[in-house]
């Protein structure tokens, strides 16, 4: 497992390894989030997922999220690892660990991180169903970027 705080990997993610990257004496709390592959979505059964990333830019964007968190919650330290490639039901796709002196900041910042990942980090998932497949994010048409880019500095 990489030593970097912000990583894209094609290997299974160890929750403990990501968590250890943010543990330090100043911290009194570590909030850890794991995003996993869900079998059923709105009555439709997923067989497996394929994740693709623009790896170099994705790692930069993850680091940017860490910097945003450090600015918004001083004293908070963030580590994020996202997996790509083929993932089976129940596999961990992403782990976010945030440590902070007190628990409130760790919880809030961790929630912020996953929402930002879904806005700005160039990673895509392809759903494989029993009756077909589709890249998610485009076909659902839940998002549009009229200006050609997302708002990266909210």
């Amino acid at each position: 497992m990489t030593e970097s705080l912000f990583a894209i990997t094609s290997e299974p993610i160890s929750v403990e390894d990501v968590m250890k990257k943010v543990m330090r004496p100043e911290a009194g709390a570590v909030a850890v989030f794991a995003g996993t592959v869900r079998e059923w979505t709105n009555g439709k059964r997923t067989l497996f997922l394929q994740y693709e990333a623009y790896v170099s830019m994705a790692e930069k964007m993850l680091a940017q999220i860490g910097a945003e968190i450090a600015e918004q919650w001083p004293g908070a330290k963030t580590a994020i690892t996202h997996r790509i490639g083929r993932l089976e039901i129940g596999d961990i796709a992403v782990v976010i660990a945030v440590s902070s002196p007190h628990r409130a900041e760790a919880y809030e910042a961790n929630r912020y991180a996953i929402e930002r990942i879904k806005q700005i980090v160039p990673i895509w998932k392809k759903e494989q169903w029993e009756d077909g497949s589709a890249w998610i994010g485009d076909q659902l048409e839940t998002k549009a970027y009229p200006s050609g880019k997302p708002e990266v500095n909210e």
């Binding site: 995003g35 994740y51 990333a53 623009y54 170099s56 830019m57 994705a58 930069k60 996202h82 796709a93 992403v94 996953i114 990942i117 879904k118 806005q119 700005i120 980090v121 160039p122 990673i123 895509w124 998932k125 890249w135 998610i136 994010g137 485009d138 839940t142 998002k143 549009a144 970027y145 200006s147 050609g148 880019k149 997302p150 990266v152």
Partner: peptide, 28 residues
């Protein structure tokens, strides 16, 4: 994205740039 930074439609391009077309993302 131009050279790994999000860019608006009015952003200028230079020889040697890498331009990535990024559909709405779906990580997490």
């Amino acid at each position: 994205a131009v050279n790994e930074e999000y860019a608006r439609d009015d952003a200028p391009l230079q020889p040697g740039d890498t331009v990535a077309f990024i559909p709405p993302v779906s990580g997490g």
